[in-house]
């Protein structure tokens, strides 16, 4: 569906954020980009979204076609909601920008919010919601236009462990239900092992791909207590230890 070919990105201060990254993302995959801070994960995500341009190499979308507005959903590390708008209006935003009317979309927004556990909070302003709930609104906003590709930049990093687990469960359920493609950036090994269908481990400075791994069997039952999950975490930890410079 989408691929990066020998993509490099250097910032004006001379930092090489990405150096010759090759990555191919299959339709319907849940790709997790895992790596320490400064390994260019977020830069890669912005390049995939078209929010930034590579200095060399190219990002190819469906063999050359450019994505249409609404085909890519983006979830940032902060919920980045409009503080003056309630949950419904925040979720409505992408559709509004596409020229749809709220009355046509209200039922759809309500059902998506309910699916994300926000029934009854349709008219709450961001200031009235908890951090986890704001992130749920942010995910609903990214999904309302039924994007083919959902890009997520450490969306759960600022949340507590319990909230994070619930959101991970819900995100996985949504992914399996909709069949959309997800690229998810994180620096949590546990989160990567739990979510990924495909794992991409990156090294810092310059940002390069160190290892790729298959995720857990998607049909498996309760993943968190599955011995296979513990084994995957162990294997990723070994990968990470190998690539990190010894001090």
């Amino acid at each position: 569906m989408l691929s990066a070919q020998r993509v490099s990105r250097r910032f004006t201060d001379g930092t090489v954020a990405l150096d010759g990254v090759d990555l191919s993302i299959a339709d319907g995959a849940f790709v997790v980009l895992l790596g320490p801070s400064g390994c260019g994960k977020s830069t890669l995500l912005r390049l995939l979204a078209g929010l930034d341009q590579p200095d060399s190499g190219q990002i190819l979308w469906d063999e050359g076609a450019k994505p249409r507005p609404g085909e890519i959903g983006f979830v940032f590390q902060d919920a980045t909601l409009l503080p003056w708008a309630d949950a419904t209006d925040n979720v409505f935003l992408p559709l509004r920008l596409a020229g749809r009317s709220l009355s046509d979309c209200r039922a759809e927004i309500r059902s998506l919010l309910a699916k994300l556990g926000l029934a009854g909070f349709e008219h709450a302003k961001p200031a009235e919601l908890s951090g986890g709930m704001r992130m749920r609104v942010s995910i609903a906003r990214a999904m309302i236009a039924r994007p083919r590709l959902l890009l997520m930049d450490e969306p759960f990093a600022a949340l507590d462990e319990f909230t994070r687990h619930r959101l991970q469960d819900d995100l996985r359920a949504l992914w399996r239900e909709t069949g959309m493609t997800v690229v998810f950036v994180t620096h949590s090994i546990y989160e990567a092992a739990f979510l990924a269908s495909h794992l991409v481990i990156m090294t810092p400075r310059p940002g390069q791909i160190a290892t790729m791994r298959a995720g857990l069997d998607q049909t498996a039952g309760p993943r968190r207590t599955d011995p296979a999950m513990a084994a995957l975490i162990g294997a990723i930890t070994a990968d990470v230890t190998r690539m990190m410079p010894t001090s």
């Binding site: 929010l51 983006f74 980045t80 935003l93 596409a98």
Partner: peptide, 25 residues
């Protein structure tokens, strides 16, 4: 906020929409 500007651009917002729905509020 730059993230919100990115979000508007990703969704194909016009300059007018960026001013009236984001920058002014």
């Amino acid at each position: 906020p730059p993230a919100l500007l990115d979000l508007f651009r990703l969704n194909g917002a016009s300059r007018r929409q960026i001013v009236f729905l984001l920058r002014l509020p």
